[in-house]
């Protein structure tokens, strides 16, 4: 009995190294498959398109990684993005007469987006840490609230950014630096900063400790509520940032903006190897997860092999597979 207990850990200790590479291998496999199926797949245009579309979900998913790692969950991010987008556009339209079309107006809009995102995240975080309500319930509630608020603000239709402002704002999505689109650059910065924060700062370490066992964290002088609150605020800010990059793409927001983003973000986090029950987070894995999800979409459209309508089926299978693999690891 004691022999088995001694041998087991040695085996499980080696496993994570291999299984951590699983999502990366899947990503490489997808790239090879894509290149094989369609010559255009590796063209700069297509790669830029895939990455830029991934960027919104990606930034949100990086924030979601911290929330989930510390044992929380946020279902409200998709609705929150729509709400932030709506408020941002309304604010810019309202400020237009006073400020005129110009960079200051765009900057003011961005500030509004970040502040609204921060406040929305703060609301979620306070409800979780102060009112002590389950994160699932809190964010299920705020998901409905944000969604209904944007629909109400848009009066059931669409909120559109003033045409002149839109023309000025467009390059934030469509142009870039050194041939790389802005959303991709911003996403890259967010991902790298997130990876460093998770691995090399107290905040990341505390997130893992709280997700692993919040009682131990409390007994170890960790400010559990403060760290939890911070994860939701950070996620809210990143939703604001994602919205800043998203609004110039279409220049409008409606009741259907950001639909199901929350599920895509959560799926990316899980596929990337972050434990859904918390305690272990891997930001680079989340990035890989986001890329896997968008590549599946892209390949299906390009390859004409399977109907793109089956996109959701394939994504669903991958999510379930990722969790099954995770469970196999933890119960070994």
């Amino acid at each position: 009995m004691s022999d088995a207990a001694v041998q087991k850990p040695a085996r499980t200790a080696q496993l994570p190294g291999l299984s951590a590479l699983g999502p990366l291998l899947a990503l490489i496999l997808l790239v090879v498959l894509g290149a094989f199926l369609n010559d255009n797949f590796l063209s700069q245009g297509n790669i830029t398109n895939v990455l830029a579309r991934s960027a919104f979900i990606g930034m949100i998913a990086v924030g979601m990684t911290f929330v989930i790692t510390s044992g929380g969950l946020d279902l409200s991010v998709g609705s929150m993005a729509a709400f932030v987008a709506g408020v941002m556009i309304l604010a810019m339209n309202a400020l237009l007469p006073a400020m005129g079309v110009g960079v200051p107006l765009i900057l003011a809009g961005m500030a509004v987006a970040l502040v609204v995102g921060l406040l929305a995240g703060l609301a979620n975080g306070l409800l979780v840490t102060q009112a002590r309500i389950e994160p699932f319930i809190v964010t299920l509630g705020t998901m409905g609230i944000f969604r209904s608020l944007i629909t109400w603000l848009a009066d059931g239709g669409t909120i559109s950014l003033d045409f002149a402002v839109r023309q000025l704002y467009r390059p934030v999505y469509y142009s870039g630096l050194f041939g790389i689109a802005w959303p991709i650059l911003v996403f890259a910065v967010v991902a790298i900063a997130g990876q460093i924060a998770m691995r090399h700062t107290r905040f990341g370490r505390y997130c893992e400790a709280i997700g692993s066992n919040d009682k131990v964290a409390r007994y170890s002088a960790v400010g559990v509520d403060g760290v939890r609150l911070m994860t939701y605020v950070l996620l809210g800010l990143l939703v604001g940032l994602a919205t800043i990059m998203y609004v110039p793409r279409l220049g409008s927001a409606s009741g259907s903006t950001g639909t199901l983003w929350e599920l895509e973000a959560i799926a990316a986090v899980i596929i990337g190897g972050t434990a859904l029950k918390g305690g272990y987070g891997r930001v680079w894995g989340t990035v890989v997860g986001v890329l896997i999800l968008s590549l599946i979409d892209n390949i299906l459209i390009l390859a004409d092999l399977v109907s793109p309508y089956l996109n959701g089926t394939i994504q669903g299978v991958i999510i379930v597979l990722a969790v099954v693999l995770q469970r196999g690891k933890s119960s070994a």
Binding site: R202, R205, Y206, E208, A209, S212, N213, K215, V216, A217, Y219, S220, A221, V222, G279, Y280
Partner: peptide, 21 residues
């Protein structure tokens, strides 16, 4: 096991948790 140590974390992470600053 419940209040003292993070059982699924390494020795290093446990050792420094309460004095991380």
């Amino acid at each position: 096991k419940e209040h003292g140590l993070l059982l699924d974390k390494t020795l290093r992470e446990n050792l420094t948790l309460s004095t991380l600053p």
